[in-house]
């Protein structure tokens, strides 16, 4: 009985974890067009001619133009996703800091989670099955 209830609680913990996780993934960016929205977009774009800087942080010609470009696109009523995807077709996936989920990045996202699950199984084995090692 004692063992069983313990197992149940690990399942609970796991399901709560998954819940947290999925909810975190769904946090949306800002909803209305504002200065904040521009910043949110430019913070997720790499300044391609700089070294390790975002568009938001950079004062280079390229970054300044990009900021204006994004503002004008937002004024035209484009959504964040539309802007990101059009920039990706123009400059490649390299420009966005969020790798997103695609065929190429499936392993990137799933590998750590898979390792976490495997680790969990190994540890559960150690703790709950009292065999001598």
């Amino acid at each position: 009985m004692f063992m069983k209830s313990k197992k149940l609680s690990t399942i609970k913990i796991l399901s709560i974890l998954i819940l947290f996780y999925t909810n975190f993934m769904s946090i949306a960016l800002a909803s209305t067009f504002s200065e904040e929205q521009t910043v949110n977009i430019t913070k997720n774009l790499r300044c391609l001619i700089c070294q390790g800087q975002t568009i938001h942080e950079s004062n280079s010609d390229f970054a300044e133009s990009m900021k204006k470009y994004i503002k004008s696109e937002l004024e035209k009523g484009k959504t964040d996703e539309e802007i990101f995807s059009s920039l990706v077709t123009k400059y490649g996936q390299w420009i966005v800091y969020d790798p997103g989920i695609s065929r190429n990045t499936l392993l990137l996202w799933s590998l750590p989670l898979l390792l976490f699950l495997i680790g969990g199984v190994i540890i559960a084995n150690k703790i709950f099955r009292k065999h001598e090692l």
């Binding site: 975190f24 990137l108 996202w109």
Partner: peptide, 28 residues
């Protein structure tokens, strides 16, 4: 290291930046 491998094997360049780490680390 994933982006390095992707670049070498498929010649695709991706950036793995803060959004990736935030999403995978914060909930845990």
């Amino acid at each position: 290291i994933y982006p390095i491998f992707l670049d070498v094997i498929l010649d695709e360049q991706i950036s793995v930046g803060p959004p990736f780490y935030n999403k995978l680390i914060l909930p845990f």
